[in-house]
């Protein structure tokens, strides 16, 4: 066995070249690409970590916002509830007040209505009584419509205060005697006599006719009015009916 030194030298050279070939075409490019991939993966991981951090921060922010919104919602709800309660109370109070007012108004209206109705009824009653009286009076003797009231008239004049009586019947202030129908001369004379007797002096008397008296006499002086007629009586009764019922 012998060693071919030329072959040994060439193979040593070849091994050196092989080192370069493998380094140039295999190990260096593959190691480079592995390193680049590693760097890319690191970058992606860093980015993912950054994104995760950002997401966590965002989540925390969202949580804070949610808490704030929740608190605000609670506050708004409480405010709204309080406001609603106050409004409800105000409405209820208004309603109660309105109801009370309406009830009072209704009561007043009822009373007024009742009074109006009473007045109407009383008016009707008085008209009815007037009508009845008129019809009844139509059946009485004609003279009675005057003569039956002369005594009453004299008595009423006699009850007048002295100072009132003193001014009655002066010539410049004639007494006005109103009757339900035209007085006859005799009746007129009788009335004048009676008045002169009671007043103690002569009087000037003017006569007038007013059928609405129904029956009786009314004496009108400047400071006095003596009403002695059915109309006056009926008016008194009517007033009493209306105001005392």
């Amino acid at each position: 066995m012998h060693i071919d030194w030329w072959t040994l030298g060439l193979q040593a050279l070849n091994v050196g070249v092989l080192l370069w070939i493998f380094s140039r075409f295999l190990f260096r490019p593959v190691a480079d690409i592995v390193r680049k991939r590693q760097e890319a993966a690191d970058a992606v991981l860093a980015q993912a970590e950054a994104s995760r951090t950002a997401a966590l921060a965002h989540e925390a922010e969202v949580q804070v916002n949610a808490d704030r919104l929740s608190a605000e919602r609670g506050r708004v709800m409480a405010d709204a509830e309080a406001q609603a309660r106050a409004t409800a109370e105000a409405i209820l109070s208004d309603a109660n007040r309105d109801a009370a007012r309406i009830r009072a108004d209704a009561e007043v209206a009822t009373v007024a209505l009742k009074e109006a109705e009473m007045t109407r009824l009383a008016t009707q009653a008085s008209r009815l009584s007037l009508e009845i009286t008129r019809k009844l009076l139509a059946r009485l003797p004609y003279e009675l419509l005057v003569s039956g009231f002369i005594d009453g008239l004299s008595e009423a004049v006699a009850h007048l205060p002295e100072e009132t009586r003193a001014g009655m019947g002066n010539p410049d202030q004639p007494l006005i005697l109103t009757a339900a129908r035209p007085l006859t001369d005799a009746e007129r004379q009788t009335c004048q006599d009676v008045l002169e007797r009671i007043l103690g002096r002569s009087v000037t008397l003017t006569t007038e006719t007013d059928p609405s008296l129904l029956a009786g006499l009314e004496l009108e002086a400047p400071h006095a009015l003596v009403r002695n007629s059915f109309r006056a009586d009926l008016e008194r009764i009517e007033a009493r009916l209306i105001h005392h019922d």
Partner: peptide, 21 residues
């Protein structure tokens, strides 16, 4: 320089590896 069989085979391997890689 005498070029022997193993040298030529090695060159062939080198050529194939260079091209393939």
């Amino acid at each position: 320089i005498p070029v022997s069989d193993p040298v030529v085979v090695t060159w062939g391997i080198m050529a194939v590896m260079t091209l393939g890689l």
